[in-house]
Write a protein that binds this DNA or RNA. Structure first.
Lengths: 234, 234
DNA sequence: GTCTATAGCTTGATAGAC
DNA sequence: GTCTATCAAGCTATAGAC
């Protein structure tokens, strides 16, 4: 807020769109709503971005580059500090998660909406597979490489499924939906990202270490679904 | 497919709505699209359900009761088998997850779309807090009670955050978005729920056990975000 | 229960003045 | 860059015939 008083209309449109897309999804928002929030006419949105979908893509693209850059830097810093012995699983997870907190601390409102948007995309059948792959997989593969070195005898499939569980836990947590507030009767709060961050790396790292161990066969033992009762028809 | 050839139009509308809502979200689908897929006129939808929102609620409600009932039964069966000593964390998680697989095996197509819908709702800022609380929290509290007994010295907040991580991992996994297929270069498949189920309980149980341990103080140690580099401005 | 027909509005997008 | 004005299309929802 020091110098940045003169914000371009393009940025104000992106800000308004980011917030509204995060709250209601791509189809839950109209260009008119966005432009009302941005304080300008609809036609201006089509001047800067030629369609609603292009505006959406611009919202996504605006932050993803910085986010990935900072995460990569966190990982490289970590590896530099551990010249020979690889860093621990927990340290690697922290390098993946901490930058999200750091950015949140920098500009409270903006990143919060962005994370909520990512959570929706990650869990969307329509966009999840495609967009998450396009925007995040190069970085994620880099992190998985580090995890592979920290868990040298790990089966590849266990590694990918473990990351998948991490991804689900992470995006839901940063979506701040308010559910944990209700479930816990108020003793946990969705917007308490420090509380989440104090717990997630330990939780996730334990999962990786439990799953990514050498096996007799490379395939995991199959659970037998024995907990389902025999009266399993309606 | 044995006997059920005569399906009521009400059910055909619900089936079509379930599939389309799961694929594109509430606002991403029109009543016309739904009724085109259901093979009847739009007006019929308003006859059976009086609004689009009511149709959506009916889609949600149709399956949630059976789902929760079977899960509760799985937990009660488990506890019955462990009269005195409480079941393990992993067994409890399996009782929470296995019924999803069981229902999927019963009616492939239907539940698959339903799970994808749940994943979107769970991660929606707009509906997540409210709807997940309304539909699932009674059952979830029952499971958390069982986990509390299996982890007797656990801090309450650790318990709720652990469940939160479980919830994110679980809903994303059952959404089958196709992302893990891309990320893993094809060696893991989103629709291979047996592979997911073989891994998730072990992963999640390890997380619970790592986090839910007695501490010196009840508050967890704060991570210091030390992995973020000093050059953290754009 | 199921359809036709239509009301009343909102949508994404554009043409063109300034 | 920004606005006014407008379009064709599609939207939710209802009234009323059968």
């Amino acid at each position: 807020m020091a110098k940045a008083k003169k914000k371009s209309s393009r940025d104000r449109i992106l800000d308004a769109a980011e917030k509204l897309f995060a709250q209601h999804g791509f189809d839950g928002v109209t260009m008119r709503q966005i432009m009302r929030a941005a304080g300008a006419d609809v036609a201006l949105a089509y001047y800067h971005f030629k369609s609603k979908r292009d505006l959406f893509d611009a919202v996504m693209l605006r932050r993803v580059e910085l986010l990935n850059e900072i995460r990569l830097e966190a990982l490289e810093d970590l590896e530099r500090r551990h010249k020979d012995n690889p860093p621990t699983v927990e340290e690697i997870i922290s390098a993946f998660v901490n930058p999200l907190l750091e950015l949140l601390a920098r500009e409270q409102g903006k990143w919060r909406h962005y994370y909520a948007l990512i959570a929706q995309i990650n869990n969307s059948t329509e966009f999840g597979g495609e967009l998450m792959t396009r925007y995040f997989d190069p970085l994620v593969k880099r992190f998985i490489g580090a995890l592979r070195r920290a868990l040298p005898e790990c089966d590849e499939r266990d590694l990918f499924w473990s990351y998948h569980f991490l991804s689900g836990a992470l995006t839901l947590t940063f979506a701040e939906t308010g559910r944990i507030d209700n479930l816990s009767g108020g003793i946990c709060r969705s917007d308490d990202m420090d509380a989440a961050n104090a717990r997630m790396p330990a939780f996730i790292a334990a999962g990786f270490k439990a799953l990514c161990v050498p096996r007799k066969q490379s395939a995991p033992k199959r659970a037998k679904r024995k907990t389902v009762s025999r009266r399993a028809r309606k």
